[in-house]
Structures are given as structure tokens and as C-alpha cells.
Computed example of a mutant assay.
Amino acid sequence: MATPPTGAAEAPATESAALIGAPTTGPAGPRGTVPTARALARARRVAAAKDTWAMFRQDRAGMVGAAILLVFVVVALFAPLIAPRELLDVTKQLESPRYAPPSLEHPLGTDNFGRELWARMVWGARISLIVGIAATAMSMVIGTVMGLAAGHFSGLVGGVLMRIIDFFLVIPSLILAIVLSAVLDRGLLTVVIAIGVTSWAGTARVVRAQTLSAESRLYVERARVLGAGHWHIISKHLLPAVMPLVMANTTLTVGSAIIAESTLAFLGLGGAGQQSWGTILKNAMDASATTAGYWWYILTPGIAIVIVVLAFTLVGRAFEAIANPTLRAR
């Protein structure tokens, strides 16, 4: 019996190893590895993130908004180092002048208890940003899930989900948030829940429209024909298609959530004992700062709210232009 030449039996094993991504060797040395599907997907995500960052850097307004937000985030994170908590203690400010106007000694003035407004603003940035981001995250999760389900499922399920979305769209979100804040126990978590539960309907409507558009694409039809289930289609195909729009809508919603928190705090429905910009406005109203001429008591938190909301809006518009190429030329 003739024996096969040397290396003939090793060739199939070598080719099989190359197909599964294992390192192979040949006469000239290592031939490298074949990238796996997971590695290719990771490389695509990294490349997409780099492209998104490159396009975002070209938007000057978005970069300005990001820089402003970075400053406020740093201030909120290092609030205990920037403004010691003793500055907020009323019992330790007995010798401090009340309603002192802005000066070198009191940069932003003092309130009706002699507390420095700049210290209250530093601590208020932490609460306002936490509530805004947490409430927006809750709103985005609920809105994305409801929008995907309403756009993917048809018949009775889709109709019921759309009626629920329409119900929350018709009811004024601020009124419903006030009712929830008044019924539930007062606290930071209550404010987050009240804002998050009442502000998701608009996101759900937008996500549903994008889901209906993605449902008509060929790769979704192919996955359905091949026997893919609802969970596979939603998680692998529809969710990635709507995520750019959701991320752009998130930054726009944070500003609205911060305004809603300030409104609830101004109405006395915020967290008890929590320092926020809305609480400062509420204290200014209780002290009749407008009629008494204590303008710094009102303008300081008001300007801070406007600046942060504007910064989030600029960042959101930049991401919206990235997600929707038709807006880049405008």
C-alpha cells in the first residue's frame, strides 16, 4: 500500500483550524487568525464610536454644550470639597449677614438665613443633575420598551399599547407629576419616579415610528422568514436601529426633567431637606425676594437652570444631527 506524502494528512487539519479562527502554521511561519463574528462586531462598534466622536467634534455648539456640562458635573461630584457642608448649616451662620448682595466677601450673596448662595448652588447642582439624569433614564427605558412593543406587535396587543401611549400623551405630564408627588412620600426617589413615569410617552411615539420603518427593511424580513422569534428580532435588529434616535432624545429630555424637578421643588413637592436649584427658588418666593429687591436670590438659580438646559439642548441637537444625516446641512 502506498503511503501518502508527508504533510498530506496535516493539510485538512490545518484548513479546519483556519476556518474556526485557530492559529495556523505553514512553511513560511504563522499565517494569522481568522477573526470571529464577535471580534468583527466589536470592531464595528469601536469604528462607529470613533466616527460618532469625530462628527460630534465638528459641531461647535455641541462641543460648547459638552464643555459646560463637564464643568457642572465636576462641580457636582466634588461638592463636599468645594463647599463644606457646614456652610449649609443654619445654626453655624448666625453671624453671617442676611440678604447680603453679591460682593467680594459674598460672591453670589446670602439668603434669608445668612447662608452663602454659591455653596447652596454647588450642592444644588448635585441634586438637580441626579434627578434629571435618573428621571430621564427611567423615561427612556419605559418609552423605548413601549415604543418597540407597539411598533413590532400588531393586532390587539399593538392597539392596546398605542391607547396607553395616547392616554399618557393627552394627560399633562406636569399635572400628573404633581399628583404623584403629593400622593407618594416626599423624597428624592418620589421626584424621580414622578418625572420618569409621566414623561415617557413622547419617546415611545418616536421610537414606534422608527420601529415601523425598521420593520420594513429586508434584513428584518429575512430574519422573520428564517424563523427568528420576537425577542431575537427586537433585541438584535430593531433595538440597534432605534438606539441612535433614543440617545439623541435622551439629551433633550434631561433638560426637561431638570425643569420639572425645579418646578416641583418650587411648588414645595421636592425632597424634604434636599438642596436643589428649585428649592432655592422656593425659598426666594417664601422670602418675597422679588418684591423686596433681593434679585440675586432669584437670578442665580434661574440662570443656572437656563445654562444647564441650554447645554443639554446643544448636545442633544448635535447627536440628533449625527443620527439624522438630513439635519447636518441645516
Score class of each variant (00 low, 15 high):
F167G: 15
A260I: 09
I175S: 12
A76W: 02
V315N: 02
G32L: 01
E221H: 14
T250Y: 12
A194W: 03
A287G: 09
R115P: 08
F319E: 02
I193E: 02
A323I: 04
A11I: 15
H230N: 09
R57Q: 12
R57E: 04
V170P: 02
S256W: 12
I127Y: 01
V191S: 05
S103H: 03
L19V: 09
L314A: 11
I322F: 03
A39Q: 15
V131T: 00
M1I: 12
G271N: 03
V308C: 10
D185E: 15
A2P: 14
I322E: 05
A119F: 06
S173C: 05
G26K: 02
T25Y: 15
L104K: 08
A292K: 15
A329T: 14
V141C: 06
W200F: 07
A22I: 07
A48N: 14
M121Y: 05
W277G: 00
E221N: 14
S288A: 13
R44D: 13
G124D: 01
R60T: 13
G202C: 00
R38L: 14
F72E: 04
G293F: 07
A18C: 10
T291S: 13
E15W: 12
L238M: 11
M247Q: 10
P240C: 07
W296R: 01
L239F: 12
R222I: 14
A79V: 04
G273R: 01
A76R: 00
A54P: 05
A241N: 14
K236D: 14
G229V: 07
A194H: 00
S96C: 03
F266V: 03
T33L: 13
L218K: 10
R57A: 09
A135Q: 02
G187K: 07
I82S: 03
I298F: 08
